[in-house]
Amino acid sequence: MLEIGIQLTLAAMILKVFGYKVFIAISLILGDGLYNLVKIIAITIKEICNKSTKQSNLPVTTEVLGDESSKLLMEQKRRDEVFLKDRIPSWVAASGYVGLAAISTATMPLIFPPLKWYLVLGSYIIAPALAFCNSYGTGLTDWSLASTYGKIGLFIFASLVGTDGGVVAGLAACGVMMTIVATAADLMQDFKTGYLTLSSAKSMFVSQLVGTAMGCIIAPLTFWLFWTAFDIGSPDGPYKAPYAVIFREMAILGVQGFSELPKHCLAICCVFLLQLWL
């Protein structure tokens, strides 16, 4: 108990020192992604309305292209045709996501009892917006921030559940959010590669499904092998698992609520989040 108390105190001190930096950075990244998400949705709705009313506001211009520009334009047109020829229907993507959400909502509370079904469903409702933000940021920087978005879910769900199982629920919800967000960014990178190499989008998606199915079998077996062969998490062992300790302590702090954050941290984050929209 004394060791746990010392770890909790150290984690609280670290959070007090670095809380402003971490959460302000999260708010900036999240604000930028949400702004572009809202902008794309607004443009899409506007175009749908224009088509339904048979209005076209696109300017008609005549542009004289040189040989080099003409080649680039033809190459881009060819890429568009190849990539869109085997595109995945929207209903397939939507039904697949709904099906996975239903399976997770039914099974995860059986594995992690503190994580109630409505919390899992809430994770799947929030995750698409965060997945877009992470995909957008990964496309700009080639740096996936899935763990950052997972920490958002960790704090939110751990504080909602409270002291009665909040640590387990927060960590499980963090895993759900990280998986969805990271997979979305990886898939967008694969689609971009397929677009540049004139590959079929459907082939890229099927390859991703095959790899995911293999990972569902290989990853648990690998973890079981290491768990039985080595003392995972031991401070004196070869596999200390430092991230496991960090995330657990963050979940413990999340159980205590947002009051553990530095003073005025959320208010400052809201200011940085909203200033991107102004």
Rank of each mutant, 00 (worst) to 15 (best):
M1H: 07
L2F: 12
G5F: 13
L8T: 07
T9S: 14
A11G: 13
I14Q: 03
L15R: 03
K16D: 03
K16A: 11
F18N: 01
K21Q: 14
F23W: 10
I24T: 05
A25H: 08
S27R: 07
L30A: 07
G31H: 01
G31L: 01
G33C: 03
L34I: 09
V38W: 07
I40L: 10
I40N: 05
I40V: 11
I41T: 10
I41R: 14
I41A: 11
I41H: 11
I43L: 04
I43Y: 02
T44I: 06
I48V: 07
C49I: 13
C49N: 13
N50G: 06
Q55C: 10
Q55S: 13
S56T: 06
N57G: 15
L58H: 09
P59Y: 11
E63Q: 13
E63W: 04
G66I: 03
S70F: 03
M74Q: 13
Q76S: 12
Q76H: 14
K77R: 13
R78E: 15
D80H: 09
D80E: 15
E81G: 11
V82A: 08
K85T: 11
K85S: 14
R87D: 14
R87H: 11
V92Q: 08
Y97D: 01
Y97N: 02
V98D: 00
G99K: 06
L100W: 11
S104C: 12
T105C: 06
A106W: 10
A106E: 12
T107S: 12
L110R: 09
I111C: 05
P113T: 05
L119H: 08
G122T: 06
I126L: 15
P128Y: 04
L130T: 04
A131P: 11
G137W: 12
G137N: 10
G137R: 13
T138M: 02
G139W: 08
L140E: 10
S144T: 07
T148S: 06
T148Y: 03
Y149P: 03
Y149G: 01
I152L: 13
L154Q: 02
A158G: 07
D164C: 00
V168G: 02
G170S: 03
G170V: 01
A173V: 07
A173Q: 02
T179S: 15
A184K: 12
M188D: 09
D190T: 14
K192D: 00
T193L: 14
G194Y: 00
L196V: 05
A201T: 10
S203N: 15
S203E: 11
V210P: 08
P220V: 02
L221Y: 02
T228M: 00
A229N: 03
Y243T: 10
V245I: 08
I246K: 01
I246V: 12
R248E: 09
E249M: 08
L253P: 07
G257E: 05
F258D: 08
E260V: 15
L261W: 02
H264M: 13
C269K: 04
L274K: 00
Q275G: 04
L278M: 08
